[in-house]
Structure formats: structure tokens, C-alpha cells
């Protein structure tokens, strides 16, 4: 189900490369702006991108981030071949984190990643298999403005 919609851009994510995450987020934001997408949506997309990429960086062992476009939605896709999420329900809770200590010492892994992605997107699909990897698809609808 990964390559249905037109691709805007795709970026490879290296494992444990914390600095690059902010860059992808602002690149995606600038791209959406150049397409004439409203700034509020650009910002939400940027936050979702950042959090999803951080998850890929910390847990997924790297992967691929892509920005896709449907008729009425932008889709941020994060794919990795990492360990998968064992307990998705728990992972969606604020403050729950399986990040290793050294990651937390750097100020990341506060257990807000997935909750934030859910908060800033309109639809969220997570396909995860333990030992195989995770594909996250976050939709933000372009029309039908939504209050945060």
C-alpha cells in the first residue's frame, strides 16, 4: 500500500542521526509552502514529520520518509525495517517510551512522539510487525479546516 499516491519527495533516514530530523521537517514544510498549502497545515506536517522521523531514527534503525499528496490530503509516510512496535496501544499513551537511556539523556524519547503525531494529524495508520518493521502513514486533510 505504500506507493499509491503521487510522491512529492522522499528522504532516507540514517539510524541515530538526530540532527537530520529537523532538516527533513523544514524541507517538507518549505515544499508544501511552495505548493501553496496553508501555513497552518505546513506547520502541522512539519511537526508530524519531525516526530515520525525521530521515531525512525531512535527505534527503527533508519528508514525512509516520504511526503505524498492525495486529492484532499497530504500524507507523511515513515517506513522502517526495525523491531516493530510490540504494544501499539501502550505506545500511543503519553509518556510511554522504550527509548534507551542514552537517547533520553540527550533530551529525546519523552514518550510524546506517537501522541503528538496523532494530535497533529487527521488520520493515522500504523502497520507494524514485530521483527519486521513499521510503516506509519499520517494524513492531514487540506480542505475542511480543523481547530487544534
Amino acid at each position: 500500500m505504500s506507493a499509491r499516491e503521487p510522491l512529492i519527495v522522499q528522504r532516507e533516514v540514517k539510524p541515530l542521526d538526530f540532527l537530520a530530523a529537523g532538516e527533513t521537517a523544514s524541507e517538507f514544510k518549505e515544499l508544501l509552502k511552495s505548493l501553496g498549502i496553508p501555513t497552518d497545515i505546513c506547520r502541522r506536517a512539519s511537526i508530524v514529520t519531525y516526530e515520525a522521523e525521530m521515531n525512525t531514527v531512535i527505534h527503527g534503525g533508519g528508514g525512509v520518509m516520504s511526503l505524498r499528496l492525495e486529492d484532499d490530503a497530504i500524507i507523511i509516510v515513515a517506513e522502517d525495517q526495525g523491531p516493530g512496535i510490540a504494544d501499539l496501544e501502550k505506545a500511543m499513551q503519553e509518556g510511554y517510551s522504550t527509548a534507551p537511556d542514552f537517547v533520553r539523556e540527550m533530551g529525546f524519547g519523552a514518550g510524546m512522539g506517537l501522541p503528538n503525531i496523532k494530535k497533529y494529524s487527521d488520520k493515522l495508520e500504523i502497520d507494524t510487525r514485530v521483527g519486521e518493521g513499521t510503516t506509519l502513514r499520517a494524513y492531514i486533510f487540506i480542505k475542511g479546516q480543523r481547530e487544534e
Binding site: 501553496g36 498549502i37 487540506i142
Partner: peptide, 23 residues
């Protein structure tokens, strides 16, 4: 007020076309 930069195209479809061309 924000200072908006002109998007690549008049509408989303046009802008997407331009973006592909840009790439």
C-alpha cells in the same frame, strides 16, 4: 501580516506539475 511567497502554480495540480519539473 505574513509575507507570502508566490506558490509554484495557480492550483495544487499545477504546482505539483511544476514541482516535478523542478525536481
Amino acid at each position: 501580516m505574513p509575507v507570502e511567497q508566490a506558490p509554484l502554480g495557480m492550483d495544487l495540480a499545477k504546482a505539483m506539475e511544476k514541482l516535478e519539473e523542478l525536481h
